[in-house]
Amino acid sequence: MTHFADCARSIRTTIIENEWIAKDTRRIRFLAPEMAASVVPGQFFMIRNPAGNDPLIGRALALYNRSPAPQPISSQSPAPPVDHDRSPPAAAGWIDLVYLVKGKLTSSLAKLRPGSDIAVWGPLGNGFPAAPVDHLVMVAGGIGQTPFLTLAQEALGNAKFGDAGNRPMGYTPQVSLCYGARSQEYLAGLEDFERAGVELHIATEDGSRGIHGRVTLPLEQLLQNEQRSGKSVRVVCCGPEPMMEAVAELAARYAVPCQVSLETPMACGIGICFTCVAKVGTTADWDYKRTCVEGPVFDAAEILWH
């Protein structure tokens, strides 16, 4: 059986940007043209600071955004004219990852500056299915919005993904993001989602922006509305496990298909260490599945949360 890890690459590359985008939250951009050309929405990368061995293992971070490398110019095509008055274009073939600065490794990453080296292996995992639907509803809690920007770009027909762009695109006319956080200062990347054409539905626990309460409140409102409209809906979810369990229960109640992207801690990312297993199946017939190779995206109905 071929696993997604079989197609992964391991590189040492250069950081282009490493910026704050919300409280305790940074976006890191690095050059990786081959990875950018093959990654699909929902996959992830293992990343570590190669300057030391503490911590030794890497950290799994979901793809947030990417710029594919430019297509090579045919030798029979005339070279484009050089405009010496213009600044050089930004490097293509980059990948963006978003991370929360809260531990030893991410604190180390936060200190790295453009031009520094970074060790990366990936892309890893199975990614989200590209399934046609009338309304794709993405549900995020905490840092869980990170897998969804590229999914929205693909679903709305703004970008192609996969080797040679072999994934379908433009398979839904409407994408919403239900995004919950402790307060508005933790909301990261809202402008990116708005530029992609995503409808935002915000919930904060302190009421500083959007609905005062949990992210399941705007989600249930959307599901109720679409149940009355007769539109087909698919839910995808990422965030803290109790939130994902609550979202899975709501989706089941409204008979809506739901996929969850698990945030199980990983050590190797390639299925060797078995530290990231999740219980999948039914209470009578279940098995452990490795989040890094059989996931991180699973059908919510298959997850045994307890």
Rank of each mutant, 00 (worst) to 15 (best):
A130N: 09
A91W: 05
D117Y: 14
G141V: 09
L124N: 05
K111N: 13
G93E: 04
K102E: 12
G127Y: 09
V133P: 00
S107W: 05
A140F: 04
V101G: 01
V120R: 03
P129C: 06
F128D: 02
V137T: 11
I118A: 01
Y99E: 02
P114K: 09
D96F: 10
A140C: 13
W94H: 11
L109I: 14
H135C: 11
D117V: 10
A140E: 04
P123K: 03
L100P: 00
D134P: 06
H135K: 15
L124V: 13
A91H: 07
N126V: 14
G127L: 10
L109D: 02
L136H: 09
P132L: 11
R113A: 08
G127E: 04
W94K: 00
P88Q: 07
A91G: 00
P88W: 08
A119D: 15
V98A: 02
L136V: 08
A110C: 12
G141N: 11
D134C: 08
K111R: 15
S116P: 04
V133F: 00
G125C: 11
W94V: 03
L109E: 03
P89H: 08
V101S: 06
I118L: 13
L105N: 02
F128R: 04
L109V: 09
L112C: 07
V120A: 11
G115P: 01
N126L: 10
L97H: 00
S108Q: 12
K102P: 00
A90I: 05
P123R: 03
L97F: 06
A90D: 13
S107R: 15
L105F: 08
P132C: 07
A91N: 02
L136W: 02
K111M: 15
D134E: 14
P132W: 05
G103K: 09
G93R: 05
D134S: 14
W94M: 01
G103D: 15
M138K: 05
K104W: 03
L124R: 02
A110M: 08
A131M: 13
L100H: 13
L136T: 07
V139K: 00
Y99D: 02
L105M: 14
R113T: 14
S108M: 06
K104V: 14
